[in-house]
Design a protein around this nucleic acid. Structure first.
Lengths: 249, 249
DNA sequence: CGCCTTCTTGAATATTATCAAAGAACGTGG
DNA sequence: CCACGTTCTTTGATAATATTCAAGAAGGCG
């Protein structure tokens, strides 16, 4: 079980498997260092030769890519307990840029720590592999939304996705979340303009799907939204039955 | 070095690292069985409880998801030498459906073979991890195209992507590829209608970007296209320096 | 208070979808 | 080898969706 003083990382991992002592030691190595970044700060930029990964300790961030002109696509929104930088370890330089959506605290670590995990803990390896694969499934869901859904459906999908993710980390969350993103950022996430995000929000409010109060959003008709976008929660459960046992010392 | 009689799987893996004997033995286990599927055949369906993965031996396939109405999004196009099913092992049932775009031969294998690889070959584990991560980066590129590019740019991106992938497997390929997909399928890949794909193809032909002859497409202005969509080849090289050494027996 | 960023609203415009019908390509069976 | 059915592609007209541009309102912060 996760102890009271455990980090969000260990809490999130414990959601899926019973961590062995060996695994805990390996994981805690990832959070030895700690660093703060202010809202709007760029943590690293695409093309930069950074072999670091990060555990998010607090705050929201997002990964994005720019097009040669001013267009921008936000690829993933990151929450506390997420490990980020995975997509970049396959290449010599980062493929996306990372920006703090609000004030955040990160724990940087090197890919040597990752190598050691691969070498010493089959259990953690399998879980990290599974989490990476899960991320990919979520991106498939996003791709489906971007390719085939209307603006209203896309926004509904995003809200349901964020809600599901936040519920993993915080069981008290029911139907209200804080959304520390500008409408321009939401637009860059969904492939829309800031203007149309505003209009779509107003429409959703008018149709009773949600209500807004500053950063805070309350989902009023979650069932209806879930059915509309055919939403599947990828976060609550994952299949860990096939995982290898820990190798004996 | 890859021998003359090696499978496409071993050929593709050898593109990135020098495979140890141990790794080769592990990999060959994935191709023990073999099965044919006719064009249009559905290999498995989303929601089905299939814990199998596949190595593609010959032919093109694609993974897709349906929306409750008739809308469809093709998520990934698969070529010979690809391993497919990864996105689904994290869940009890498949998250996408798989369909043969033409007559194909597949090699099915169980996730137990994967577990054995994780347990016995750190080198292969790292490479498969890296390939999974690379796939994710490619999906990020796709997401960027879907979210922020025009129809012409999206189609250009798709063609460059396919070209780069095919060049890995076949060094003779220069600027002409066979595209065994209908325009409706291309539309489902790019988030467009079959009608608009047709119109966009015509436009690209008129502007001298490509020429067509049945299934065959010749890219005439690859440089211009690559600049237009800010294309980066994710297939030619990957960073394998951080890989662990083989564990001694 | 005043400035800056973000959000809202409306009008005009652009891009892509939808609908419909005709033309090509292809395989199959007579 | 031709005729037919089927699937795929093309083309044109119209409609829907989202963008762009512009201006004003609402907050937060020094």
């Amino acid at each position: 079980m996760a102890g009271a003083e455990d980090s969000c990382l260990i809490q999130k991992f414990s959601h899926y498997i019973e961590l062995s002592d060996n695994s805990r030691v390996q994981l805690s190595r990832l959070e030895e260092e700690e660093r703060d970044y202010a809202r709007g700060r760029e943590v690293y930029s695409a093309g930069q030769n950074s072999q670091r990964l990060f555990v998010v300790k607090s705050g929201w961030l997002y990964s994005y890519t720019d097009l040669p002109d001013a267009r921008r696509q936000i690829v993933k929104i990151h929450h506390p307990g997420d490990i980020l930088g995975f997509p970049d370890i396959a290449f010599e330089s980062a493929t996306t840029s990372l920006r703090a959506a609000e004030d955040v605290t990160l724990c940087p670590f090197g890919s040597d720590a990752l190598r050691e995990i691969f070498d010493k803990s089959p259990q953690l390896t399998a879980l990290m592999f599974t989490l990476a694969v899960r991320d990919q499934v979520c991106m498939i869901d996003t791709l489906r939304a971007m390719g085939r859904m209307s603006a209203l459906e896309r926004l509904g999908f995003l809200l349901l996705d964020l809600l599901a993710r936040i519920r993993i980390a915080n069981r008290d969350v029911r139907d209200t979340i804080r959304l520390p993103l500008t409408q321009a950022e939401i637009g860059d996430t969904l492939g829309l303009t800031n203007v149309y995000v505003s209009k779509t929000f107003s429409l959703m409010e008018a149709e009773g799907y949600l209500s807004r109060d500053g950063d805070w959003i309350t989902i009023l008709r979650e069932e209806a939204l879930a059915e509309m976008v055919d939403f599947v929660d990828r976060y609550a459960t994952m299949d860990t039955n096939w995982f290898p046992l820990e190798r004996p010392e």
